[in-house]
Structures are given as structure tokens and as C-alpha cells.
Amino acid sequence: MVKERKIVCRCEDLTEEEIVHAIEEGYSDLESLKRYTGATTGACQGKGCLMHVVRILSQKTGKSPDEIGITTQRPPVNPVPLYILSEGDVE
């Protein structure tokens, strides 16, 4: 039988089961969970997966999404090729 695989994070190829496992291992705050699993650190930088991760964390820990919060949002908003950045001006 094919094992049911719910993909939560497509960039890093993470299943719901893997997120749950990490929470059970003790990585049960969002910033630790992000680093341990790699969720939200791929090409989409969390745009596709952050809310799923928050939902799973909320279900597992009983904390509200407000208590869990979101990960630190870091620039750039979208990936920017280095050849474009290198055209910028600096003093």
C-alpha cells in the first residue's frame, strides 16, 4: 500500500509527518521547527508553507496561531539574482 504523504513544504520536500516528528523531538517553537526541518527556508521563503506549519504546530501543541506567531521575515521579498544586485550603488 502506498503510504499517505501530505507534502507541507514543496521547496524542501517535507511531509506533515516529518513536521510532526520534529515537534515530538522537542523542536516545538516555530523558529526552532523552521531550522530543524528547513520548512520556510527554501525558494519560497515560507510563502507556500508557513501557514501549514503554523497550523500543524497549533494542532500539536494546543497553542493558538497568535501565540505561535510567524518566522522573522527576511529580505529580499522574492529571490533576486546576484547580477542584478551587483549593479546597485554603494559608497
Partner: peptide, 11 residues
């Protein structure tokens, strides 16, 4: 050659 790669995140 790295010039075509995109920066994903800075901190």
C-alpha cells in the same frame, strides 16, 4: 559564474 544565482535570504 555565481552571477546567475538568486539571493534567497539575508540576515
Amino acid at each position: 559564474k555565481l552571477k546567475g544565482l538568486a539571493m534567497l535570504r539575508q540576515w
